[in-house]
Simulated assay, not measured.
Amino acid sequence: MNFDLSDEQKMLGEQARALLGDLSPFDRLRGLIDSGAEWDEPLWRALAEMGFLGVTIPEEYGGLALGALDLGVIMEALGGANAAVPFMSSIVLAAEAIRLAGSEAQKAAWLPKLASGEAIGTFAYAEGPGPVFATGAALQGDRLNGSKGPVADAGVAHVAVILVAGGGFAIVDLDQPGVTRTRLDSFDQLRPHYRIDFADAAAEALPGVGKLDRLIDGAAVQAAFEAVGAADACLHMARDYAMERQIFGRLLGGYQAIKHKLADVAVATELARSNAYYGGWAVEASSDDLPAAAAAARLSGIKCFEMAARENLQIHGGIGYTFEANCHFYYRRERMLAVHLGNRGFWADRLLTAQPGSQTKAA
């Protein structure tokens, strides 16, 4: 059995990293924060032109019809660059929800727009304190009432897939009367979150039922890929600094304690990468192992990114906490990703209760 990526997947990752290296350097991220921008629109257009937005969308809807591992190598590159784009919200969650549960008419209406970048989507599952996946918002006929929040990237989204009472999905055009978006304070300045209030907003039910577990398991795997890419970037940033910084007459990297820190991060990152690869395989194979594989990938991704972001700060010392340094981009993203789609406790429970051949309950 070959556990390596294919040549095509490696090339896809190289193309994504090259694009992000050119268009999303740290100075660009700092400029976005200074200007108050919610996202990097030119980068989003470039991702669309490369076909990355449609990587898992079927060909009949303008996509490339590739698999979860192909999507994963792109997510890993996005994580490494700390990119300020709504890729997780629009492609991994909203587009996938429509693909899994939408009618043919809904797919034809929205998937081509999401694949081309013409429209941006988001997925609204939370309702403040309480269950991770809450179903208080109510769809009665074609009218939606209730609130959702925090919702990532809702400020730039055109359409939202909403988790509604009964556990189903509704699709809502956000540019209409009856929809109010309120920006929330966000620790990650490059991934804004909003509360969305619905007051008799026009909406359509997605006819597919029982798709929530499959959606969040797939998204958990992609979040793990993003975490692995970011952790690897932190590891290399810390290593490069340690090989340049002089302290007490010798290189910082020459001290055994620093070597141990970097080695621990490297081991944790490789373990998380292996779990992400297995999770990607389980998604593509529709394996009975998917619930456990997704939970393991999510947990190891949270752990490796947390360790990498914190050790990167520690190795840089006081300068690492300044805005002019680059460590804070990853530390902020790590804190946000650690609770997105459920925190460590939520996924630990799913791992413990996952059984081959069955799906656990998301709410």
Rank of each mutant, 00 (worst) to 15 (best):
L190E: 09
V228S: 04
A231W: 01
A238Q: 04
D173Y: 04
D240E: 14
P192R: 00
L174Y: 10
F225Y: 09
A227W: 02
R245K: 03
D188P: 14
V209C: 06
A233F: 05
Q176P: 09
P177G: 03
E244C: 15
L190Q: 09
V172N: 04
R181N: 07
R183A: 09
A205P: 11
R214K: 11
A199Y: 02
D240C: 14
R239Y: 12
Y241F: 14
F248A: 13
E204G: 10
L206G: 01
A205K: 05
D175R: 02
G168E: 05
Y194H: 12
G208E: 04
L212F: 06
I247N: 08
E244G: 15
E244Y: 05
D175E: 10
P192E: 10
D197C: 08
P177Y: 00
D213H: 12
A233W: 05
P192A: 03
A223E: 12
A170I: 13
Q176A: 03
K211H: 01
L206N: 05
A170Q: 04
Q176V: 07
G178E: 02
D188F: 13
L235V: 10
P177W: 00
V209D: 13
D185M: 09
A201Y: 00
G167S: 04
A199N: 13
R183Q: 05
V228I: 10
P207A: 07
G208D: 01
L184M: 12
L190P: 13
R191N: 03
Q176N: 08
A223Q: 09
H236C: 13
A199R: 01
L212I: 11
D175Y: 04
D200Q: 08
L190H: 06
A170M: 05
K211M: 08
V209E: 13
R245E: 14
D240V: 12
V228P: 09
G210I: 03
Q189T: 15
A242K: 06
Q222H: 10
D173F: 12
A201P: 11
A203E: 10
L184N: 11
Q246T: 15
A230V: 10
L206P: 11
G178Q: 00
G208P: 08
L190A: 06
V179A: 00
R181Y: 01
L235I: 09
I247W: 05
D175F: 13
D240A: 14
A230N: 00
